[in-house]
């Protein structure tokens, strides 16, 4: 009886460990910490570090955009939270926005983050309720970033300097 129990236990254990090995090679984590993060994503227990997220938001409101993104990347290391990715995209937008011209590199990174945020909320349009923000939906933010990257005749309009950052 015990022999058979060990046998079945061995079969189950071998299957689980084998699946883990395959998963590690597919996920290819870059550090041991990332193994834990990706494992928690895989089993559905992944959560954003709320304290770090709030710390990042405080920095964002004080216009410390790079520091804010650093906090948010620690709060959401697996880039699985749509709301955090939206804030990251927003920080790229605000940092890259210029009265005369926009920083294309920052806008491109912002666009990537906005796309991630949209991809992470496939069921409904992502909308973030935050009184400090002027753009609340990910789609609108994406359109704003795409508009900033476009080269049009309107770019030479001198009245452009009076536009407002959102």
């Amino acid at each position: 009886m015990r022999h058979r129990l060990i046998q079945w236990l061995g079969i189950a254990w071998t299957c689980i460990l084998g699946a883990f090995v395959v998963w590690v090679y597919v996920a290819a984590p870059r550090s041991v910490g990332e193994v834990a993060t990706r494992a928690s994503v895989a089993v559905g227990t992944y959560e954003v570090d709320r304290a770090r997220f709030d710390a990042g938001r405080d920095l964002f409101l004080r216009e410390q955009y790079a520091a804010a993104r650093d906090e948010w990347s620690r709060a959401d290391p697996a880039q699985r939270d749509a709301r955090t990715q939206f804030y990251i995209a927003y920080s790229f937008y605000r940092q890259g926005w210029g009265r005369v011209y926009n920083d294309d590199d920052l806008f491109k990174q912002g666009l990537d983050a906005a796309n991630r945020a949209i991809a992470l909320s496939p069921d409904a349009a992502l909308s973030v309720e935050d009184a400090e923000l002027k753009i609340h939906s990910a789609a609108e933010l994406k359109a704003e970033l795409e508009g900033g990257l476009l080269r049009t005749a309107d770019d030479f309009n001198p009245l452009k300097v009076f536009r407002e950052r959102k």
Binding site: G10, W13, G18
Partner: peptide
């Protein structure tokens, strides 16, 4: 049985 069914597959994996 422990060696054959659990330890060996664990080592090899």
């Amino acid at each position: 049985a422990l060696v054959r069914f659990i330890l060996l597959p664990t080592i090899f994996l």
